Amino acid sequence: MNDNINDLLATSEDEYHDFKEQWYSLNDRAELIKDIFSFVNTAHHKDCYLIMGVSDNHKIVGIENDENRLNTQKLTNFLHSLPIANSHTPKVKVKSVTVEDHLIDIIIIKDTIDVPVYLDEDKRPKRCNTTIHAGQIFVRENDTNTSIKESASDYLVERLWKKRFGLDLPIQQQYKVKLQDIGNWKYFETDKIGFLYDIDPDYCMFLEDDNENRYKVESYALGQFRARMGWQKLILKYKDRTIAEFLVVILDGARFMTLTPNLGAIEPLSDTPLTFQYFIADSLEFSVEKLFLSMKQGPTAPDGLQKFNLFQRIVIFDSSRQMNQVKKELSNKKEYIENQCTPSQEEIDKCRSLLSMDFNSNDREMQQPNLMHMCQEANVSQFIIRYLKTM
């Protein structure tokens, strides 16, 4: 946060941040509402900052003696007390940092697609002379908030509605927004099989056969009662346009379906890379995966045990940046990890016993090198999962 605050202090006020010399008094609570709502109602997709204890010319004056200071809980309670339409209460956090021997407070206003935010009843906070009216919409444009006596123009409000419905985003990002609306996706079987977004049928995902000669078991399947997998392709369509294609697998005796995770490695260019399976949490494919795991209809969702066992062997990174950081850190511990993750004979025998329900002894999936590789890969994935919990 310190690096971020230094950048903000060096930058002129804009759609992302504003300076205030002091906290809002009880008489100024209407202005506090207006300023927070204005930063929530921005057309961009980033957090915003109200920085208390800094003048407009960037001079640090501090708030250490300011009797009107609010912490996160008190500010949140105040916002919850307001008659906000649809209960879309802004999420805020107050952080304090020391700069030039002065204490400043930063109100972090979290980005949301639940815009526009406004009141559905008139509200005049105690000791204020100004009323915030029902339906009055404040926005932030460049370095200026809507006047407390006015409401934003139709053009600016239209930008907020586009943000709310993801219409301001590239098509892949729009797809992610639609995938979060889990209750409106339906599984269908007609002449084709797939998933339809009921609200906007232009968004549709089709399942197709995959004819590649692939292994019928992977390390992430070893926790299921039946490990044999069937492969299919999932085609994400918007109208007639293909947006993305992913491989999916049918698991545990065709009782549920999951996207295939990605294959990663610690020191991938070495002679003995340590491979693992992973998803990136902010990716389009993981948005599809979360839909699959949450749908109530169709052959997609695992039960609790199936899901638990699946993600015992698949790493979920917050972002590609986090994955690269972890791989870099663990490359210095490769020998230790290899020692920890080399499968025991008991693990290999257990894996062979599991696979024997679906494979013959001469199948390639049953060969000793493959059994050892899968067991080690599962162990490496589990090692990284534990490592992430320590970060």
Rank of each mutant, 00 (worst) to 15 (best):
S353V: 02
D349Q: 11
F359S: 10
E338W: 14
N370V: 05
L354Y: 01
C351K: 05
F359M: 05
C351W: 05
E347F: 04
T342W: 08
F359A: 01
Q345N: 15
C351F: 08
P369Y: 10
N360S: 10
M357L: 14
M366I: 00
E365A: 03
P369E: 10
S356L: 04
Q340E: 14
F359L: 02
S353R: 10
R352N: 04
Q368S: 09
N339F: 12
D358P: 01
P369G: 06
S353K: 13
D358E: 15
N370Y: 15
I337W: 03
N370P: 01
R352Y: 08
N339K: 10
M366V: 01
K350R: 10
N362D: 14
S344W: 08
N362I: 07
S344Q: 07
P343A: 03
F359E: 03
C341F: 01
E347Y: 01
R364H: 14
M366N: 04
L355I: 00
E346C: 11
K350E: 13
E338I: 07
T342N: 12
D358R: 10
S361L: 11
L354I: 03
R364I: 01
E365F: 02
E347C: 07
N370D: 08
Q367M: 02
N339P: 06
S356E: 05
N360E: 13
L371F: 05
L355F: 06
S356Q: 07
E346H: 12
C341D: 05
N370W: 14
I337D: 01
P369L: 07
S361A: 11
Q368H: 12
M357K: 15
Q340F: 11
I337L: 04
L371Y: 05
S356K: 09
Q340N: 14
Q368L: 10
F359P: 01
L371G: 00
R352M: 07
F359G: 00
K350N: 10
E365L: 06
Q345A: 15
E365D: 04
N339S: 10
D358S: 14
I348V: 13
L354D: 03
E338Q: 15
E365P: 00
E347D: 02
T342D: 11
D358V: 00
S356I: 03
P343L: 02
T342P: 08
S356W: 05
M357F: 11
E365Q: 04
F359Y: 02
P369M: 09
L354C: 03
E365G: 02
E338G: 08
C351A: 09
S356D: 07
S361Y: 11
I337P: 04
Q340V: 11
E347W: 04
E365H: 04
N339L: 13
N360R: 08
E347S: 09
R364E: 11
S353A: 15
M357D: 15
N362T: 07
I348A: 05
M366P: 00
D358T: 02
S361I: 07
L371R: 04
P343C: 03
C351H: 06
D349L: 12
E338L: 09
S356C: 06
P343N: 04
I348T: 05
L354M: 08
E346Y: 09
R364P: 00
N339W: 11
D358M: 10
Q340A: 12
C341T: 15
E338S: 14
Q368T: 12
S344C: 07
